[in-house]
């Protein structure tokens, strides 16, 4: 099987890689590019642990072929912080104890970022339904929702 050459943008950087036709973007990120912050919880789009943002929309990278990234722009958890400055969502997740084991956290952060990018003032219900594709088994979601609310408030410039 011959490899496919892909040129894409990941976290703002030009990236080129070779992948197999049936290889998922998640496998490319983890196994070829060393970007292991995206996690595989199911491989079938049911848990959201591999969430990445592609051309502005949050997607499950396990349901995207590596070859499909050609010419696209991909954001992963590794690109969320600005250097050593954490994104407000990252800060609020730590402050609000919104993670226990943390395996779902990168996926939640990417999905929540995609939400706040389009809806800076989501209601609790909007947050809960937007994040319904991200499974967390530790927290019962309470502190996650609160962290997203707090980050949204901070990003709007309100006192959290």
């Amino acid at each position: 099987m011959s490899s496919i050459a892909v040129s894409t943008t990941i976290n703002g950087d030009d990236v080129e890689y070779l992948c197999q036709a049936d290889e998922t973007l998640l496998d490319v990120l983890r196994n070829r590019l060393g970007l292991m912050g995206s996690k595989e919880g199911c491989g079938t789009g049911d848990c959201g642990a591999c969430s990445t943002i592609m051309d502005g929309r949050v997607v499950c990278s396990c349901l995207v072929l590596g070859a499909e990234a050609q010419g696209r722009s991909i954001e992963t958890i590794e690109g969320m912080a600005n250097g050593s400055e954490l994104h407000p969502l990252q800060t609020k997740f730590i402050e609000h104890a919104a993670l226990q084991c943390g395996i779902c956290t990168p996926g939640f952060l990417m999905a929540a970022k995609a939400l706040l990018d389009v809806n800076p003032e989501p209601t609790e219900e909007e947050i809960r339904f937007w994040l319904a594709g991200n499974l967390c088994r530790c927290t019962g979601y309470d502190k996650i929702v609160r962290a997203v609310q707090a980050a949204a408030a901070e990003m709007r410039g309100e006192a959290a």
Partner: peptide, 21 residues
């Protein structure tokens, strides 16, 4: 008290290493 957890930054930046990492 409720201080920040020591493994927090690793876990929100994707640097924490789990079984498959």
């Amino acid at each position: 008290t409720r201080p920040l957890r020591p493994d927090g930054v690793d876990k929100v930046t994707g640097r924490a290493r789990y079984g498959a990492d």
